[in-house]
Design a protein around this nucleic acid. Structure first.
Lengths: 226, 226
DNA sequence: AACTGTCGGATTGTCGGACAATCCCAGTGT
DNA sequence: ACACTGGGATTGTCCGACAATCCGACAGTT
């Protein structure tokens, strides 16, 4: 392992395509672009001041992430989630995240600390003014940390993809914020259980938590489709 | 649910990009392109008789699937797996596939039958002449069916992505074929356990099976890097 | 000899334009 | 009410171009 004094340095490359993709994500999660909206390549290119090729590549990324769908010769549009798909997402989340929770003991100290940090950041965020999207992001960061307990970068990546879809379904929903205090308490309780080594109880609690989230998401997509 | 007499019909659209991506996959899994090989856009475009744009988009797909990596301004190359990454892949597989096995009872009859069918196809394939890649594909199909038991299409997709990396690591390995009889027996035993409702034992067995696979994969990538 | 600066070739990232294939829709005819 | 037809819009793919960046070689400095 190379142990130069610059090991911690890292420069992330940001291409135009990346910026376009990021801007689209932001717009989607913020709810500016409703599910089902057609993402025309030309229109986006002109709006963003880039070429069609660039937009096209960025759209490819969104499709790969699952937050947009591309129908051949028809175009790309913001993914539309029905109840069945929401169930699918939540089932997948439950599998991965509970695996993480159950692996608390074997997880590295680093991973465990990620959970604590994410929870702390989330509870501090409450009250301060921030976008709904930002609030959701902080919440999902906790669940990302749960996945991190598995010690598998690929499972973390998978969960991140699932979270993208969650954010899509929750875009512009304020109700998540309404019971913020309750949410913080719930997660904090979850962490306590893990710290106490009561992992099965924690997994059960997490499953219930996700089921609850699933319910409100289904309710939300139902409201939207009406 | 629309129940027309044509419900089973489905025409998959195959674009040039798709064909290029598929051809690259085939070549990778067949071991013609070793890990670390640089995938130059121009060279590929000329070799395949398509434009650079098309190749570029296809490469983007491979990158999204995780079987190639793109370094900005440097290019795309076949993913190189070290021991740590193989461990990561196998950990992820274990989490998802054991979840499927444990969910045998709740899984639909359809999903359970997929497992039986995949196993049957695998055992029939043994002995007949076929590519190593085809053999591996049939084997992984069983594991895909395990993931299918979770009832989540997204987990299945995740496992398929993982399997792509597995095939990358196993490219051109004949040893998987050597103990084919043993492999078939192992999976068949696994299915018996599930049919008997001894799910915990099955999950344990699967975990051991995957650990074994992990070991031989690590051995393989070690041999290659030497 | 080790380090630094410079140059040229190769490759990528992004752009603009082009054109056929395909799709959607409205209008027409029966 | 249904089938046909034509036009406009959009995508899929191609081509050519150029700046930015990277890599290796080579030369210069201490």
């Amino acid at each position: 392992m190379s142990n130069t004094p610059f090991s911690a340095l890292h420069l992330e490359p940001v291409s135009t395509v990346d910026r376009v993709a990021e801007e689209l994500r932001r717009s989607l999660f913020e709810g500016e672009l409703a599910p089902g909206t057609a993402l025309r390549e030309m229109a986006l290119a002109e709006a963003l001041g880039v070429s069609r090729s660039t937009v096209r590549e960025a759209l490819g990324i969104l499709v790969a992430e699952g937050i947009a769908v591309r129908v051949p010769n028809k175009g790309t549009q913001v993914r539309r989630l029905d109840a069945e798909q929401v169930r699918d997402v939540c089932r997948a989340r439950t599998v991965i995240e509970t695996a993480g929770v159950r692996g608390w003991d074997e997880a590295g100290e680093q991973a465990r600390d990620d959970v604590r940090r994410a929870l702390a950041a989330y509870s501090e965020l409450r009250g301060s003014d921030c976008t709904t999207a930002e609030f959701t992001a902080a919440h999902l960061e906790i669940h990302r940390a749960f996945a991190g307990l598995t010690g598998s970068a690929r499972l973390v990546a998978a969960v991140e993809g699932l979270h993208s879809e969650v954010r899509l379904a929750l875009a512009e929903v304020d109700r998540a914020r309404g019971n913020a205090a309750e949410q913080v308490h719930s997660h904090s309780h979850l962490l306590d259980l893990m710290e106490d080594g009561r992992l099965d109880e924690a997994a059960e609690e997490l499953t219930a938590h996700l089921a609850e989230a699933e319910e409100s998401m289904i309710e939300e997509v139902g409201r939207r489709s009406r």
